[in-house]
């Protein structure tokens, strides 16, 4: 549907699905454990790391498209 030179629609939908999976039950439970990562609790670190990863993926998909887009 998008066409043009924005990020591809299929990439975005796939990223969104991945985001939903990573941010929800049951994958989130993986991080819900005692112990530490670099001296920090694992759950918040994992949440922020996944978040940053999704932003980076979106930025990559968006900026790599380059150029303008005229709609379809």
């Amino acid at each position: 549907m998008t066409g043009g030179r924005g990020p591809g629609a299929r990439v975005l939908v796939a990223l969104c699905a991945a985001g939903f999976a990573l941010f929800n039950f049951p994958l989130l439970v993986v991080w819900d454990r005692p112990g530490t990562i670099l001296g920090l609790p694992p759950l918040p670190v994992a949440l922020f790391a996944i978040w940053a990863g999704l932003i980076a993926a979106l930025a990559l998909a968006s900026e790599r498209g380059g150029g303008r887009d005229d709609g379809e």
Binding site: L12, L47, W51
Partner: peptide
Amino acid sequence: GVWFLPIYLGPMLAMLLAWIVLR
């Protein structure tokens, strides 16, 4: 605790689709 976070994770997921839906 971490339960304040979903309110900001949702927008992250929405923004992944912004180019499709918001545009």
